[in-house]
Design a protein around this nucleic acid. Structure first.
Length: 436
RNA sequence: GGAGAUGUCGCCUAGUCUGGUUUAUGGCGCCCGCCUGCUAAGCGGGUUGAGGUUUUAAGACCUCUCGAGGGUUCAAAUCCCUCCAUCUCCGCCA
């Protein structure tokens, strides 16, 4: 949700931002017009409502006196007149109220169509117009090592770590079993990630993966992204696509103490994605799946701190990938590819040898005050009234894609896979996964 | 799943049966001021949140807000309906 007062005062900011996203900006003017009508209607309502209340204050005591039989004939007649007048007022109140009630959702709808203001520093353009910020590590030269790399699925089968055939039998396409060392690998990554997070001051959280509609809507997943969300019709619940949803909604309808900020959480949850519209893409292996586990970082912070916090989230993401000894690059996502709630977004893409390219493994977004407005999360400093705060999120680890990157980048010709040093304590001190 | 109880402005609490004379009571906590060698106590005032009108400004005023949403009524914290949450008991269960 955008800031309606800012929009009234400086609509050009929003028109321009929408253009930068390559999005429709007609909602800005639609909002302004509806908002004006709504406020006019609101004022009328408040006026007649005030009259009605005044009348009620006269009728009340008079009725009391009437019951006690203390009214003179003249007062009795006056009361009767008041009641007639009150009835008429009541009708006018109802009419005015229903006009407001009519306009309200329209204003709301227009506001919802307006995306978050983009950060002026974000590169302008569509998906391919990203800016590369860093490249870290070098892709391995398998040619010079004298063998061609196997892809993660082949390795996963050699190690008996990944089983997609049986997953297809049981659940369908885009599902997987992690077996043996595969399962242990995920648990090791989880523990490494959680220790890393808590070491950096995050509170570990295991949130619910089923949420009610307001949580889903508040985080912005019921707009364009809706087709990718699983919904449980019978119970009116959604399966979350990321822990961002329950983490963001954790403090919904709360006013947080500004002194306590930033509040940082690391949430571990399963993630469910329908992957509608991606038929035929990444059908092999576990790069694109319907269900996976992820540790997500989430921060509630002062809007003044949001840009710095975003940089911090990014550097934690990088640090974590460094621990896993993976080559990657960091990109500054272009305005057209931000999604409605992010003002700026950095993706980290790990090198995938068998694809000869970088693929997204983590992503961090600065949502400024956009989400907190929808979720009604505010902060209060010692003096002064509550204000919306900023929310930011960033992937610490998305299991399948990191497993893909680990297997492919650290493989040997015999199909064994080297375990990065940081991970060894979590795998019983082993330094390799061996074919089974 | 069955039976019952509860939900009031940070916390506790009055008000709900019997609708109006309530700007929603009082206490605790917190904030400001007064008073007092200091502290404590005492005294006075303030203290839900949202939207709006107006003003150079401080402010003033209005409307909404008693778990949420509907309804009845001239008028709803109070009556009716639906939903949500919590608690107690019973049953079932990893």
């Amino acid at each position: 949700m955008i800031d309606p007062r800012l929009l009234r005062a400086e609509p050009d900011l929003f028109r321009d931002s929408q253009l930068r996203r390559g999005a429709d900006n007609s909602a800005v003017d639609r909002f302004l017009e509806l908002d004006r009508s709504r406020r006019t209607a609101q004022q009328l309502f408040e006026e007649v409502r005030a009259q009605q209340k005044q009348m009620g204050k006269r009728i009340g005591p008079a009725r009391g006196a009437e019951k006690r039989g203390e009214l003179t004939e003249g007062q009795q007649a006056e009361l009767a007149r008041w009641l007639t007048e009150a009835e008429e007022l009541s009708n006018r109140v109802k009419a005015a109220e229903s006009e407001v009630a009519d306009l309200e959702p329209q204003v709301e709808a227009a506001a919802t169509e307006i995306d978050n203001l983009v950060d002026p520093d974000a590169p302008i353009g569509s998906e391919s117009d990203f800016r590369t910020l860093h490249e870290v590590g070098k892709p391995r030269d398998f040619d010079s090592e004298g063998f061609s790399p196997k892809d993660h699925l082949e390795l996963g089968e050699i190690l008996r770590a990944i089983d997609t055939d049986r997953a297809a039998k049981v659940s369908g396409s885009r599902f997987f079993y992690l077996t043996g060392d595969g399962a242990l690998l995920e648990l090791a990554l989880l523990n490494l990630a959680m220790n890393f997070a808590t070491g950096n001051g995050f509170t570990p959280i295991i949130p619910p993966a089923l949420v009610r509609p307001p949580a889903m809507a508040g985080t912005g997943f019921l707009g364009q992204a809706e087709e990718n969300v699983y919904r449980l019709e019978a119970d009116d619940l959604y399966l979350v696509g990321t822990a961002e949803v329950p983490l963001a909604a954790f403090h919904s309808n709360e006013i947080l103490d500004a002194e306590q900020l930033p509040l940082r959480y690391a949430g571990f949850s399963p993630c469910f994605r329908r992957e509608a519209g991606s038929h035929g893409r990444d059908t092999r292996g576990i790069i694109r799946v319907h269900q996976f586990d992820k540790v997500e970082m989430f921060s509630f912070c002062n809007p003044d701190e949001a840009v710095a916090e975003h940089e911090r989230l990014l550097s934690w993401e990088q640090e974590f990938l460094d621990l896993l000894e993976l080559p990657y690059r960091v990109i500054d996502v272009a305005t057209g590819d931000l999604g409605s709630s992010a003002a700026r977004k950095y993706d980290i893409e790990a090198w995938i040898p068998t694809q000869g390219r970088y693929r997204e493994v983590t992503s961090t977004s600065n949502c400024t005050t956009f989400q907190s407005r929808r979720l009604n999360i505010r902060m209060r400093s010692k003096s002064g009234s509550p204000h919306p705060l900023a929310t930011l999120n960033g992937t610490l680890i998305a299991m399948p894609r990191v497993i893909v990157a680990l297997l492919e980048n650290h493989q040997s010709a015999d199909g064994s896979v080297a375990i990065p040093e940081a991970l060894r304590p979590y795998l019983g001190g082993r330094d390799r996964l061996l074919p089974k």
